[in-house]
Every structure is written in structure tokens, then in C-alpha cells.
Design a protein around this nucleic acid. Sequence first.
DNA 1: TATTGTTATACTCTATAACTATA
DNA 2: TATAGTTATAGAGTATAACAATA
Lengths: 147, 147
Amino acid sequence: MEPLLLDRLLQIGDLFQKDMDRAFAGTGLTPARVHVLWALQHAGPSTQQALAGLCGVTPRNITALVDALEGTGHVRRTPHPTDRRAVLVELTPDAVATMTRMQQDHQELSASLLSAVAPEDRDAVERGVAAIAEHLAALVAQAGEAR
Amino acid sequence: MEPLLLDRLLQIGDLFQKDMDRAFAGTGLTPARVHVLWALQHAGPSTQQALAGLCGVTPRNITALVDALEGTGHVRRTPHPTDRRAVLVELTPDAVATMTRMQQDHQELSASLLSAVAPEDRDAVERGVAAIAEHLAALVAQAGEAR
DNA sequence: TATTGTTATACTCTATAACTATA
DNA sequence: TATAGTTATAGAGTATAACAATA
């Protein structure tokens, strides 16, 4: 019996997570902390409130994640120039280098995955996966409203 | 700029997780506990060692998950018929009904996702996603050996 | 009065190590 | 001696609620 499309997608998600967990082992990084680093690379220096929004977690949680990332030298807290309640979190030069490398690996992995698809199927797969992501996002948003 | 295929797949994984978390809210279920229930529905009554293997977690962790599921009435522990060291964990009738419903939802969601893909792309998407899953599994297994 | 970040507390998932009862 | 499950301990991620300083 063929596995369902959904089962394949769930399997892919599990494999990514397993791979990430091992790739970060021993580096002091975890998926949640890398998520913060990604947000900082894309958005630049940010307040913790902003990070909470970008990562979809509570401000309290961001405090803990930034504490850990500060401890491992990945980020720095600096005073906010105009709002003395807030702090700005920014990547250290080392972390910028790490994130640049990670982004390259990311692009290479994406290319490697596409190379596993038969050449005549590649366009359809890119279109189809994008359509699935958008459809699923709409379903989840709809379920969220009905809450 | 088009998002990478990999970004789409990661987005799909995040959306599934978000949807599951909300679907289970208030039921006492969590992704890890549902994983145990799935394993039990597919494998039938099982020892905790067997569940640890099926779920890919430590036996100690299974003890905690089964404790929680027993507390919410989803599973029962019964003595193993031939090995007095072991226990058999089995679904309660209520949990069997819950899992049957969940399996139906699962199939419907899979069909819904496929329906979001253009009809002429569907075969290619099913082939391509399967190929990606197998390719990724091989990459992860290879990285695991090099450990 | 509203917002930013923190302290306090709690729950879940996860792991390793040591221990008990049984094979 | 090896295996099944548990107790003990620890760390990470997550949440809510109460509080301080500042806007």
C-alpha cells in the first residue's frame, strides 16, 4: 500500500528535525535558539518584544532564549537608543559568520532535494509544494479564527 | 524572489505542528502522546520496550508518557502473560474510537492537500515528494553513520 | 494607563545513570 | 549476566501571572 501524501510530508518534517538536532549537538544551539538567530539575521537588531512576535513565542520565553544565546556568545544585548525600557538584541560577528554558513548549507540542501526528483517532474513539484503550503496555511488560519 | 523548495517544506512542517498543537488543546493529548497512541493502534498491545523502539525515545520517557496516558484514560497497563518483568500497554475502547476518528481526519486532510495541486501536476507531486523523502532519509542515515 | 522586560512557578519532553525484579 | 521497568536527577522549551521601570 502506498503511503499517503500527508504521511510523506510528515516524514520529511521528522527527518529535518532529526537532522537539525544532530547537526547542532555539542554547539550549544537548539532549534528554538537557531530560530531566534534566523530572525535576527533577517530583521537586524531587534527588541525582545519584536523577537517574540517573529518567533511566535511569549516574551518570557525570549528572555530565556536570549539569556542562553548571550551565554554562548551568539548575541549581545545593547541599550535601546530611545526607549530606556527596551533592549536591542544583535548577532555577534561570530554568529553572523555561523548564520552565513548555515544559509549556504540550507541552499545546498534545497538543491540536493530537488535533484532527487526526476527532471521532468521538478516544475510540477515546485508548483505543487507551494500550492500545498498555501492551502495548509489557509486551513490553519481558518481553524484559528473559529477558536 | 521565490522561496526555496526547502523553505516550503519547512513551512509545511511548522503548519502541521501548529495545527496539531491546537487540535489537541484541552484534550490532555500532546504530539508525543499521540505518537504513542498511533504506535499502539498499528502494532496492537505492546511492551514499553517495544514502544520505545517504535517511537524512537528512551524507555524512561515511555514510562512518563504511558503514566500520563493512563491518567487520562487513553491506555491500560496489563500484566504480560509470560514475562513477569514486562507489562503490556493497550488502548482503551475510548482511545480506539478517538484514533479511528483521527485516522479518518488524516486521510481527509491528505486528500484535501492533494486537491490543492493542479490536476495535471498531481502524479508528479506524489512521485517527487516520495523521492525527496527517500533521498532525505538516506542523507540523514549517512550523517548518522559518520557520527 | 500601557508597554518592556524580568522574577516566580509550573508542565511537558527529553536524556543518562542507578536500582529492583525477573529471565 | 542480561532485560523490563522504575526512581532520581537534569536540562530545554513552553506557558501564565505578578511586578518593576519606563513611556
